[in-house]
């Protein structure tokens, strides 16, 4: 599996969100995308699986341009776990996960699809939730169900938009570790958007650090997570120490808000509480 992104650009109407993105992602591995709010992280992964069409540049998945895939073929190749799931009308867990089989099924769900769903629920140790309604679950269980749905697509590449938001530290670690294990044992390329630098540093094989709609740095956690980069991208002073072979970020004090958040030359989305597009 391979994702090649060349000179990718994207804008919502006139506001440019992504510009000049160049990336070449290979092999089963666990990749985290880090960066401040509104920097274009979600937009970037949406450009990978046809949810959005790039304004400029190309995205190749396994050598074929994304626009040439049908939505169904794309869904077989790339699984997607959204940030929130707008469920006005909740289904049971089995039925929710079964929806992940849609790209593979013809007409209605058959026994084979159900078997796959059972298998995934068993692997994620969620069989006890199988018949519960989606709206009766806790936030952590929600994330796992959504993950199960993404896995039911049997993708080669799995995209996750902040799968650990709303989770306590224990569940963040559980989910992130599970994702890393998935990429290593199942041979899936897992790309996750995250806000927790320490957890990303601990489990990721690679980190993509984004700033202002561009890729600021790519590499292993040790290479990317430096005091300089964190200052540059987040505007936060920090100290990096290495323990267990992983970099750990110790946060110092913020540099004053006014300088980073209200800079008029920045894109409008760096202001807090303005309800701008997430990611």
């Amino acid at each position: 599996m391979r994702i090649e992104i060349k000179d990718l650009g994207f804008g919502y109407s006139d506001i440019p969100v992504l510009k000049n993105i160049n990336l070449d992602l290979n092999n089963p591995q666990f990749i985290s995308i880090l960066g401040p709010n509104g920097v274009g992280k979600s937009t970037l992964i949406h450009c990978l699986n046809k949810i959005l069409s790039p304004s400029s540049g190309t995205v190749l998945v396994d050598g074929k341009e994304v626009s040439e895939y049908t939505l169904k073929d794309m869904a077989k190749k790339i699984g997607y776990v959204p940030y929130t799931s707008g469920d006005s009308f909740p289904l049971s867990v089995i039925d929710t996960v079964l929806m992940g089989r849609h790209p593979h099924s013809n007409r209605r769900s058959n026994e084979a699809d159900l078997e796959k769903v059972y298998e995934i629920l068993r692997k994620l140790k969620m069989t006890h939730l199988a018949l519960r309604s989606f709206d009766e679950l806790s936030a952590g269980q929600h994330q796992k169900v959504m993950l199960a749905r993404g896995l039911a697509q049997e993708p080669e590449i799995l995209l996750l938009d902040e799968p650990t938001s709303n989770l306590d530290i224990r569940h963040q670690m559980d989910v992130t570790r599970m994702l890393r294990n998935l990429s290593h044992t199942q041979g899936i390329m897992v790309i996750m958007i995250s806000h927790d630098i320490n957890i990303a540093a601990r489990y990721s094989d690679s980190i993509i650090l984004m700033k202002d709609g561009t890729v600021f740095d790519v590499g292993t956690p040790e290479e990317v997570l430096t005091e300089g980069n964190i200052m540059e991208v987040y505007g936060v002073e920090s100290r990096i120490i290495t323990e267990d072979g992983h970099p750990h970020i110790i946060l110092k004090d913020n540099i004053p808000d006014e300088e980073t958040l209200w800079d008029p030359s920045e894109s409008s989305c760096t202001m807090p509480n303005t309800g701008c597009l997430k990611g």
């Binding site: 949810i51 997607y80 707008g86 929806m99 849609h102 790209p103 007409r107």
Partner: peptide, 23 residues
């Protein structure tokens, strides 16, 4: 009746529906 599973996807919102292969 025959497209009811697509109707399920539609409720998830356009993003999720697209990512699961539904226009």
């Amino acid at each position: 009746i025959f497209t009811a599973n697509k109707l399920n996807l539609l409720i998830l919102g356009d993003e999720s529906a697209k990512s699961l292969g539904l226009d």
